[in-house]
Nucleic acid binder design. Structure first.
Length: 997
DNA sequence: GCTCTGCTGAGAGGA
């Protein structure tokens, strides 16, 4: 008998179910020699329970209490058996693992796990590019049903000159001619294959004859939640298999099977065959194929791969081990998390020699166990020495620290990942969340918008339910039955009650008649960019060595003493001219950057003209002939600077998806420039090297341009909001860098509590700030009037913030009709003397720029709902204040309402529906950073200060958005318990107790 | 206790 903890509760985000697509919660695991028994339940109440007996090797499955599993096979009255002959157990089935990950784990499980954490940055090889291009030629010939040499060679040339692969050739440094040679070598065997297998009628008595009668699909995308698999099937073909006659007459078999194309050696290796077997497994629900084919395009030979139970069983066991390691890279030890061990390092040096995860493999080993370099086997010791010998203990510490933080932070992202809803929730359930629209049918012919972008229109039948999807959202399309999950992904264009239009990566016209569902797809972004950057920082090369010294060892930044050596003579006048428009600290900032040999930190306090400063800096650097890489975390921050820069005839290249770029910046994107004709490699090279200034987001550094170009300066805007690993990314490509930010404003958002407490919200900006000599402060501001500024000064800046002019200092809200409103209020007060409204009259006065409206005396209770926290009383008060202020002549577009919680914004917005309020912007503190309004109304929402406003940086941002008037609404008595708010309240002259009705 | 923006991606061969 096994005992299990009755208090163990299933978390909210877990979805369980019975039936063919079952999901069981593992209540308990009982291990015995040779077998393992699971106590499981598919109900969240954990009643009733069933059992599952694992044996014949399945008992080695690393399944634990609290895991979710899927069971295949049969159960006998609630007891399942998974053994040699029957049944499968799929561990964590909602984590879909790709076919290639699993087949790569055959040789080295450790490599497969690392491959999931770190997307390798090696950029591939010429052979790989050729492989991709041969695939493309084959697939397009298949679509055109024409494998003649003329057609093939035409398709090859299109691929060579089309936009798609030029970037890869640029990265790899191979010429179009070279690639052409490689590619053309394959064409004859492609034709040969077609002659041999495609509709061939050549009868052969002796052997099995396989004839491909139809190429049913190309690059079919498959998500198989039943087996926890995903993949892309090169070609899905209908084949006729005629076996040799043995006497009697035999009808040929017709089947739909996956074809896996390979351009490399005809190895027929276990990895290749495993890939095919996994494809047959994941398309079980679609066609139930028992066979697949490996098609080697070098020779045109085709090998059948028959999938038997044993192969499938062993591959699923590998998948289970892999998924276990991916999900359990962190373990708890005495309340503190730490990295877990990975599968062992191979001791066969031959295999490891070309492994793309070599460095990460060694780094990880030393991160979990610093002593491993001394105690392991000799082979491993040598390997560790070779890969990490150049690193000091602090370097290794930095690596393991950030690796752990990233793994911790990845966990909440994983649980939030809503992708599993696509297959675990019905359309009705998902529509209720607003994340899905169902009952859709194709309503118009699919049109091709550009290469690989297909415009679809769907008609919705039945009642339109609550609408949660918006245009621009990333989506995934599946059939409603759950047989064709994840058919295509793309973006939503138009949503109305009846019609949905979207652009998808695949043409779904062959599914006419199918009922579709469209789900929002937030995707699983993960933290692989972060980890890749941290790993790169540990590389044994010049760029990384230098950056490591500055970032990890915190070596003091150096400066040269004389400007004249950096300023070219011919640029002097231009630079002097540009400098004219700047104030003193801004000029200092320019000078510091020019003198820097390593880096400069520019602290841009609120309203001090950060964007202008960066724009001016770029102009100066440009005038001096320096190249500049301009980045920030968000597209909008990058474009804000570019919009300013554009006016000064400074040329630049903007990298990134056109969809995300500001419309006015679109003409500068690579996409648009290339439309004007870039067909050769040298044209592309020209485009990539033409502009001194290149702009992109920090995550956009996977672009081919960075395989070759280096910049004199890298500027990172909003650097105090970017987490360290991300901020590092662009710095690899520049000799010097400039971080612009303000650590007194919002830090990087970190969801995991432990990750935050262990320092994940420390930006690189903050880390480097200890070197005072690298810091310039922009403290002259042009936003807030004197009273508002002094509030922030007392809270955060110790009086360092200054007004740029008397005009700024004295500016007040203009309310042309205030007298009318005031007299109305007065007469109301006279008629109802029990309602003293003098507090309200004082509040409205522009000459009272900062007011706190204290709701302590009225019951202003917050309510915690599903969507978050709100406070109706505060919302009502804000509604009244705004009505009066707008009546008094304040323009709605000059008004901003800020609250720390989304739910409160909803509550406020719903009260501001009337047209009088059109233009009033209601948003979170976070969204308001970097922006301002003449009048800001701030709702504190909580009578007990929440986690969010305890952060004085968030509070600082909130109060510094107002130019002329700041109204704060909250419960003063309780808020006083928190030091930052207390400090703030003590500074105020105007605290009004409001008496609401 | 509820703040949010980034990202195509699974596979393209080689020993």
């Amino acid at each position: 008998m096994s005992l299990f903890c009755p208090c163990s509760k299933v978390p909210d985000h877990v979805i369980l179910s019975g039936g063919p697509n079952n999901r069981y919660w593992v209540v308990d695991v009982e291990e015995r020699p040779g077998h393992k028994t699971l106590t499981i339940s598919c109900s969240k109440s954990l009643q009733p329970t069933e059992t599952c007996l694992l044996k014949d090797g399945w008992e080695m499955t690393p399944v634990r209490r609290g895991d979710v599993v899927h069971l295949e096979g049969c159960s006998d009255g609630g007891s399942w058996l998974v053994d040699r002959e029957q049944g499968f157990l799929v561990l964590l089935p909602d984590s879909l693992i790709s076919g290639t990950s699993i087949s790569s784990s055959i040789r080295c499980m450790r490599r497969a796990v690392l491959g999931d954490m770190f997307k390798s940055f090696d950029g591939g090889s010429k052979q790989m590019l050729n492989g991709t291009m041969v695939h493309e030629v084959f697939q397009r010939a298949a679509t055109a049903k024409d494998f003649s040499l003329e057609k093939l060679s035409k398709l090859a040339d299109e691929a060579l000159h089309g936009p798609r692969y030029l970037g890869d050739m640029y990265s790899l440094g191979v010429s179009q001619e070279e690639m052409k040679q490689e590619l053309h070598d394959y064409l004859p065997s492609l034709q040969h294959w077609a002659n041999e297998y495609l509709n061939s009628s050549a009868p052969k008595d002796s052997a099995t004859v396989v004839t491909v009668t139809e190429l049913a699909d190309i690059e079919e995308n498959v998500w198989s939640p039943r087996f926890g698999l995903k993949g892309k099937i090169d070609v899905t073909a209908r084949v006729r298999i005629q076996r040799p006659r043995t006497g009697g007459h035999r009808t040929p078999e017709e089947k739909i099977v996956p074809l896996e194309l390979k351009t490399g050696k005809e190895s027929n290796s276990i990895e290749h065959r495993s890939q095919v077997i996994l494809y047959t497994l994941m398309s079980l629900e679609r066609y139930n194929p028992e066979t697949g084919f490996l098609l080697y395009l070098k020779t045109g030979n085709m090998h059948p791969v028959v999938a038997n139970h044993m192969d499938r069983r062993e591959l699923l066991k590998l998948r289970n081990t892999l998924v276990h390691h991916i999900h359990n890279c962190v373990e708890q030890e005495a309340e503190r998390s730490r990295l877990t061990r990975l599968p062992d390092i191979l001791t066969n040096r031959q295999t490891c020699q070309y492994c793309p995860q070599k460095r990460n493999c060694a780094l990880y080993e030393r991160a979990v166990d610093p002593s491993s370099a001394d105690v392991s086997e000799d082979v491993v010791q040598d390997f560790l020495q070779q890969e990490t010998g150049h690193l000091t203990p602090p370097h290794l510490n930095y690596f393991s620290h950030w690796l752990l933080l990233c793994c911790l932070e990845a966990a909440p992202m994983e649980t939030k990942n809503s992708r599993k809803r696509v297959w675990l929730q019905t359309v009705q359930e998902s529509e209720k969340n607003g994340s899905c629209v169902g009952n859709l049918q194709l309503s118009a012919p699919v049109t091709i918008q550009s290469e690989g972008v297909f415009l679809h229109r769907f008609q919705r039948s039945g009642v339109a339910s609550q609408q949660g999807l918006a245009s621009g959202d990333r989506i995934v399309v599946s059939d409603q039955e759950g047989r064709l999950v994840g058919l295509a992904t793309g973006y939503l264009c138009e949503v109305s009650k009846k019609v949905i239009s979207c652009t998808l990566d695949r043409d779904l016209s062959k599914y006419s008649g199918v009922l579709f569902r469209v789900d929002s797809d937030e995707g699983v972004v993960g933290l692989s960019t972060h980890l890749t950057n941290v790993s790169r920082l540990m590389e044994n090369c010049q760029d990384s060595d230098r950056l490591r010294e500055l970032v990890v060892d915190l070596r003091s930044p150096e400066f040269i003493s004389n400007l004249s050596s950096v300023l070219p003579r011919e640029a002097k006048d231009t630079v002097a001219n540009i400098l004219k428009g700047l104030n003193k600290p801004q000029k200092q900032a320019m000078k510091k950057v020019l003198l820097s040999k390593d880096y400069t930190l520019i602290v841009g306090m609120p309203g001090t003209g950060k964007t202008t400063t960066i724009c001016t800096l770029v102009r100066i650097l440009h005038a001096c002939g320096f190249s500049v890489l301009l980045t920030s975390y968000t597209h909008s921050a990058v474009d804000n600077i570019l919009l300013k820069l554009k006016r000064f005839r400074v040329g630049f290249l903007r990298l990134g998806q056109g969809q995300k770029v500001h419309p006015d910046i679109l003409p500068y994107t690579e996409e648009s420039v290339r439309k004007n004709g870039v067909h050769t490699l040298s044209e592309l090279e020209q485009l990539y090297s033409k502009e001194l200034v290149v702009a992109t987001t920090c995550m956009g550094i996977k672009h081919p341009i960075f395989t070759h170009r280096r910049f004199d300066f890298c500027i990172v805007d909003e650097a105090s909001q970017i987490s360290q690993p991300v901020c590092l990314g662009p710095l690899f490509y520049a000799k010097r860098f400039v971080l612009v930010g303000d650590h007194q404003q919002l830090p990087p958002i970190v969801q995991n509590q432990e990750a935050r407490s262990r320092g994940m919200d420390e930006s690189l900006f903050k880390r480097l700030e200890l070197h005072k000599e690298a810091v310039v402060q922009l403290n002259v501001q042009y936003r807030m009037n004197r009273q508002i500024m002094s509030l922030s000064n007392s809270l955060m800046y110790d009086g360092r913030l200054e007004c740029g002019s008397e005009r700024t200092a004295l500016a007040l809200l203009t309310l042309p009709f205030l007298l009318t409103v005031q007299s109305e209020l007065s007469s109301y007060s006279q008629m109802q003397p029990q309602h003293d409204l003098s507090w309200l009259q004082a509040t409205l006065l522009p000459s009272n720029p900062v007011c706190f409206l204290d709701c302590s005396m009225v019951p202003a209770l917050e309510s915690v709902e599903r969507g978050g926290i709100s406070n109706r009383t505060e919302a009502a008060l804000i509604h009244m204040l705004l009505s009066l202020l707008i009546k008094a002549g304040c323009k709605p577009s000059d008004v901003g309402v800020i609250a720390p919680y989304r739910q409160q914004l909803k509550t406020i917005s719903s009260l501001l529906q009337s047209s009088a309020f059109t233009g009033v912007e209601v948003n979170t503190v976070d969204r308001y950073q970097g922006r301002d309004k003449s009048l800001i109304v701030l709702s504190f929402v909580r009578s007990t200060l929440g986690e969010l406003l305890k952060d004085w940086r968030r509070l600082n941002v909130a109060i510094t958005r107002a130019k002329h008037k700041l109204l704060m609404v909250g419960s003063a008595t309780t808020l006083r318990r928190y030091t930052p708010v207390e400090k703030l309240l003590n500074h105020l002259h105007q605290i009004h107790s409001c008496v609401c009705h």
